[in-house]
């Protein structure tokens, strides 16, 4: 079983469009969208849900006004400024700021604070024209994306074993924080999609350092490489120095947006220079995870 994760540090470099193309090209795989915060892969793959499960995680404090004696200890102890004192003297919890730490619940002398679990999102096992897909939707503004990512990874693995598939291909989140760290666990190869811009380069360096930190092997794709040849050369130099194989240099092409509008992978459209390069890139990726 191999796990390949497509990430980028910077958003908007082309992760999801490329993941969809690789999903088209790859065989015997489970697809997984680990960008649970703002998932987009389903827009291209049109998954049909086979199963839908609620994702419950974490808790939230809620003050029972009938029991509360308005002593204010909860407000004093809350490190997140989530307990609000109102003009009439009553207290309430701002759910957006509540961290779910249970400190107020434990210390309330009147046992006036409830601590219900939170329904943070939904997750799905689906079928697509490219095979099985595991994905989710975190409700807007919710936390616990790291836990949901870990859960999806586990489910994708289970599904791959059940169906005798030997590859998990995942689309990741931007950034280098909680959900990305969670998505790296157990990954055989992180494919980093960058672009020849100062921010693309900067964010590549940080996400590559993150992979090094967690000892995950990396490969790099320079997308829209023809936008700035100087930056591209500089990124290639950086990758040589760090021993990150550059597995693809893909041209800037509006056909990516056309494919998106038609809800297709770019490799499903008529052959272009870009689609040929994507095929070569995928072959190189597969050589790195034999």
């Amino acid at each position: 079983m191999r796990e390949i994760l497509i990430i980028s540090g910077k958003g908007g470099t082309g992760k999801t469009s490329l993941t969809a193309a690789f999903a088209h090209l790859a065989k015997n795989k489970v697809l997984c969208d680990l960008d649970v915060d703002a998932p987009d892969l389903h827009l291209l793959l049109a998954p049909e849900h086979e199963s839908e499960v609620e994702f419950w995680a974490g808790n939230e404090a809620r003050i029972d006004q009938d029991t509360c004696q308005q002593c204010g200890l909860c407000r004093e102890m809350c490190r997140y400024g989530a307990v609000i004192e109102h003009d009439d003297g009553h207290f309430s919890v701002d759910s957006l700021r509540c961290e779910g730490c249970k400190v107020c619940v434990s210390f309330c002398p009147d046992e006036a604070i409830e601590f219900p679990e939170k329904h943070c999102g939904q997750w799905y096992i689906s079928s697509t024209r490219f095979g099985a897909m595991v994905h989710a939707r975190l409700f807007p503004g919710e936390e616990n994306s790291g836990r949901l990512v870990a859960l999806l990874k586990q489910e994708a693995k289970k599904l791959a074993e059940e169906r005798h598939l030997d590859l998990i291909l995942s689309d990741g989140a931007p950034g280098i924080g909680c959900p990305v760290i969670s998505s790296l666990s157990g990954t055989d190869l992180a494919v980093l999609v960058t672009e020849p811009t100062p921010s693309g380069r900067h964010d590549l360096e940080r996400v590559a350092s993150l992979c090094d930190h967690f000892k995950v092997a990396t490969a790099v794709i320079i997308n829209k490489f023809d936008l700035n040849s100087e930056q591209t050369a500089s990124i290639e130099g950086f990758c040589r120095e760090k021993n990150y194989p550059v597995v693809g240099k893909l041209p800037h092409d509006k056909v990516i947006t056309e494919a998106m509008v038609q809800r297709l992978a770019v490799t499903e459209l008529a052959e272009t220079g870009l689609s040929l390069e994507i095929e070569k890139t995928w072959q190189k990726i597969m050589q790195l995870v034999p």
Binding site: D37, D40, L43, L96, L138, G141, S145
Partner: peptide, 24 residues
């Protein structure tokens, strides 16, 4: 994104400017 880090940034502001492109 739209989870906790994004919420942390907008929660105390007076105006929110959402930048988007018109792709799907």
């Amino acid at each position: 994104g739209v989870s906790c880090p994004a919420v942390t940034s907008v929660i105390d502001s007076d105006v929110i400017v959402l930048v988007t492109d018109s792709t799907p």
